[in-house]
Computed example of a mutant assay.
Amino acid sequence: MSLMKTELQKMLDGELYDASDATLVEMRDKARTLTAQYNLQMGKPLAERNDTLKQLLGACSTIDIQPPFFCDYGSHITAGENFFMNFNCVILDCAQVTIGKNVMCGPYVQIYTAYHPLVAEERIKGPELASPITIGDNVWIGGGAIICPGVTIGNNTTIGAGSVVTKDIPDNVFAAGNPCRVIKQINPDKTEFV
C-alpha cells in the first residue's frame, strides 16, 4: 500500500502541488506574520531584528537582511555566514533556497523557486511547481536581478544588476544580461569593479 504524499511533500519534491492546501496556507500565513513583524523593525539594531529572522528562517548566524523583506515560507531558506541582502528583496521559497557564505545581494533582488505550467489549460487549473535554487559562496548579486527556478550560481561569481538568471552560472565569472550570460572569467589576482 502506497502512502499519499502531502501537498508540502509534492512541493518540496518538485511535483505539481496545490498551493491552496490548508497546511501550506497556514505556513505562508505564519511567514507573512513574521515578515510583517520583521519589516516593522526597520531601524532597530541588527541583533533585535535577527531574533525575528531566527523565528522565520530557523538557524541563522551572522546575516543581515534589510527590511522590507518578503518570502513565502522562510523555512526553506538556508543562508551561510555573512549573508547580506539589501532593501526590498523577495525569496519565493516553495523549494529549498541554499545560499552560501559571504553572499551579498543588492536591493530588489528576487529569488523565485516557484513556477507554473506553460500550457494555459493546465495553468488555470491552479497547480504550481517549484525547483530549488543554490547560490555558492562569495557571490555578489547586483540590484534588481531575478534568479529563476532551478538555477545554481557558482562560487565567487558576480551577477550584474538587472540580470535575469535562467540557467546555471559557473564559478569565478562575471555574468549579466537578460537572459544572463557569462561576460568574462574573474581573475582573482586582479582588482576589478562592476
Rank of each mutant, 00 (worst) to 15 (best):
K10M: 06
Q37I: 12
E128Q: 15
K5F: 04
N155C: 06
D189G: 10
N82D: 15
M27D: 08
A47P: 06
D171R: 01
I91L: 02
T166G: 13
N155T: 04
C94T: 05
P127E: 00
C180A: 13
N172V: 04
Y108P: 00
E81A: 10
I186N: 08
M4C: 12
C94D: 10
P149S: 13
R49I: 05
E128V: 03
R49N: 09
Y108N: 11
M4D: 09
P45N: 12
I65V: 09
L16T: 09
Y115I: 00
K5P: 06
Q55D: 03
S75Q: 14
K10C: 08
V173G: 03
I133K: 01
E7R: 06
A161M: 10
K30E: 02
N50D: 11
I186V: 15
N155K: 06
M104R: 11
A130E: 01
P149R: 13
E121H: 00
G43K: 11
C105V: 12
A79C: 15
E192D: 08
R49Q: 06
R28S: 11
H76E: 05
Y108I: 02
N39C: 14
F193R: 06
I153N: 00
Y115Q: 01
Q66V: 07
I124T: 08
P127M: 00
N102K: 12
S20M: 13
A31Q: 04
I135M: 05
M85T: 08
C180I: 15
N187V: 11
A145P: 07
A95F: 08
T134S: 15
P67K: 05
N50W: 02
S2K: 14
C71E: 02
A47W: 13
I77P: 02
S61F: 13
D18E: 08
I147S: 03
N39F: 02
L53D: 04
I63V: 15
T191P: 14
V164T: 04
N88R: 10
I159H: 07
C148P: 01
G58C: 03
A145H: 05
L56S: 06
N138Q: 07
P132N: 14
K30S: 10
P107G: 03
I65Y: 04
I111L: 14
I159D: 02
V182W: 09
I159W: 05
F193I: 15
E81C: 04
F87Y: 06
A59H: 11
D93A: 02
M11L: 09
T6L: 10
I183Y: 14
T23M: 10
V165M: 07
N155D: 12
D64Q: 14
F69M: 03
I147E: 11
L129F: 07
E48N: 11
S163E: 03
K54Q: 15
V90A: 05
T134G: 13
N178C: 03
Q185G: 10
D72C: 12
N86G: 08
M85E: 04
F70M: 11
I65D: 10
F87H: 03
E122H: 04
G14Y: 07
C89W: 01
K30I: 11
D189A: 14
P107D: 08
D29L: 14
P127W: 00
G143Y: 05
V182G: 07
I91H: 01
G177A: 03
N39Q: 13
